[in-house]
Nucleic acid binder design. Sequence first.
DNA 1: TCTGGGGTCCTAGGACCC
DNA 2: TCTGGGGTCCTAGGACCC
Length: 415
Amino acid sequence: MQAAATILHADLDAFYASVEQMLNPALRGRPIAVGGGVVLAASYEAKAFGVRGAMPGREARRLCPELIFVPGHFDAYRRLGDAALRILDDYTPLVERISIDEAFADLAGTTHLFGPPAAVAEAVRRRVRDEVGLPISIGVARTKHLAKIGSQVAKPDGLCVIEPARELQFLHALPVELMWGVGPATRARLAGLGVTTIGQLAATPGQSLEKLLGSAASEKLRALAFNTDPRAIEVGRRARSAGAQAALGRRPATAQVIRPTLRLLADRICSRLRARQLAGRTVTVRVRFADLRAVTHAVTLEAPVSATGIVTEIAEELVHQVLGAHPQEAVVSLLAISVSHLGSQNGLQLELPLGLAGEARRPGSRAGASRWRADSAMDAIRQRFGWNAIGYGSVVLEGPGSVPDGFRALAEKEL
DNA sequence: TCTGGGGTCCTAGGACCC
DNA sequence: TCTGGGGTCCTAGGACCC
């Protein structure tokens, strides 16, 4: 017996841009972009001109001369995204929030209360429109993946219900790039086999696919193509890593640039970790050179860390190792730090990891304790007066390419 | 006109242990 | 002495997503 279509995927349409158009009626029906130096989001009217997220502002203006840039109301995005997607909670406890503007819900256990999933989806769409003022598209299907494809097909402002009896017929006519996990590289590889539709993918022998994409990816794609995606809704997923990055334009690879940048990045990461009583064992840095080639370097410690000073020093040493291995590179265009292997941090961290290349990492007491006190003091001040009340100067990061703090905060996943 | 920021997952190879 | 196999952890890089 076939299960019914009870998974719902809800996706707010052109979310940031729709919020701006809701808040300011003069922007409705017009091509707008949130951002300035970089397009963070574009309205449907702007997308019609080819304007896309992550596009340099200048390029966007060239494509669409009437494009209106708006600075962005990031607090409103948070508030309205939550308000819209919390409506799902009224119909099921099984809600998996994917991002600020997207969520899955499983209605299997609550159809006796609220009726068929298609009716719930209509009710949710109506309520999001009436109570929040925003358009939202919804896909309903038997699996997460198909529901997600449904919401994409339904856009803008639509509903797409895929009943089990016609799911393969529906799916197989669509292009492969609508599948989760098929980006430009995979699409090009598949095209090399003559595969451009999901139906053609389904007809391709598993072995050829595996040779082309590896075992995990080909398994996943076949599960999607035959709609046997086994994933269940996961409530309350937490991040497995925390990171920060800064695009630098073109900067000399000197300590004067690298040290303050790494300190700022470590500060962002570590204050988030400490707020959750978390710490991480693995520190990874990423260095991007002038030609945009990037190199990563990582180290896994015996004990987890969350002190800003310690993470800064580790990152600095890793970056120096990268630069030492690439002596011809004199310019950096991006620095990033990520902390992973997260675990709960019990009590005071006394470790002082020095000498990553193999020297013993000894517990260092005095320096560790004073750093802990410095971090605690800073955390306390920020808790009272806000993040910007105190901190490490961000002078190095100012420039047209950088992105507002509010936008960064929205991208952070719950730790 | 050279491309933001925060994440996830997978692969391949090497080290190390049993 | 040689040979083999399996499992785990780590690192670097790639692809992808919002």
